[in-house]
Amino acid sequence: MNKVPNNRAWWLVLPVFILVAFSALIPLMTVVNYSVQDIFGPGNAYYVGTEWFREVLADERLRESLLRQFLFSGAVLAIQIPLGIGVALMMPKSGIKASLCLILLAIPLLIPWNVVGTIWQIFGRGDIGLFGWGLNALGLDYNYTGDTVDAWLTVLLMDVWHWTPLVALLCYSGLRAIPEAFYQAAEIDRASKWAVFRYIQLPRLKSVLVIAVLLRFMDSFMIYTEPFVLTGGGPGSSTTFLSQTLTTMAIGQFDIGRAAAFSLIYFLIVLLVSWVFFTAITHLDKEK
């Protein structure tokens, strides 16, 4: 759509600007202030320059948690995107069945995040949970509170359970936007199922997939509540992801300066990634 240049439109945006600036800019400025000082209490702070940044960048624990975070986000994307596409392809095209599928798929998305953690905390336990009990009954030695690998797999499985429906819903709406004529043409050409997917469905899914990857990356990158409830970051620190490391540092140990410096680095990573994806989305929009 061709837009009209009009700077008075700023007045319409002003309320949003003020509201978000209040909740975003003031805290951001505060974090920057904290990051260059050593704070002992109100009015008792010393300027330390870039000391915190140096320490954070050299901190082994933070590097590990950053690495763990990238591994987790990578695994989340590698599983959920193909699985989500698969589910979307299996969904009924229309009618009451389709509505039912949509609603059932949406349910995990609407559960408060701490309850998601609770569900899996119960479900995975060897004594009272069906999942843990079932695995143990099959002769597998499964214990998510004690074993690192099990804890990882449980957190990953929980995230797959929680968020794959989102990818599926997105892909489903992308598939519905393909005109029926495309499929008819493919049928006349006797195209194989794979060819239909590769040359008709996948290209049309491009824009929703970018959004799906963006949302999944971002949300898995800031995951906090679910693993916190499920494993508490353990065993050891094997499932402690970035947000949890940060929260423990700021609130648990009251190490404000270091936490602030870490926050800013965290924020810069997020900013870079979301900018790349945003640019990709706007460019795809333009192509249309």
Binding site: I26, M29, T30, V32, N33, Y34, V36, Q37, I39, P42, G43, A45, Y47, G49
Partner: peptide, 15 residues
């Protein structure tokens, strides 16, 4: 705004 702990350096940066 004491809790924001402004320091001159950061103030200059944002300015």
């Amino acid at each position: 705004i004491e809790w924001m702990n402004w320091t001159p350096t950061v103030a200059i940066f944002f300015a």
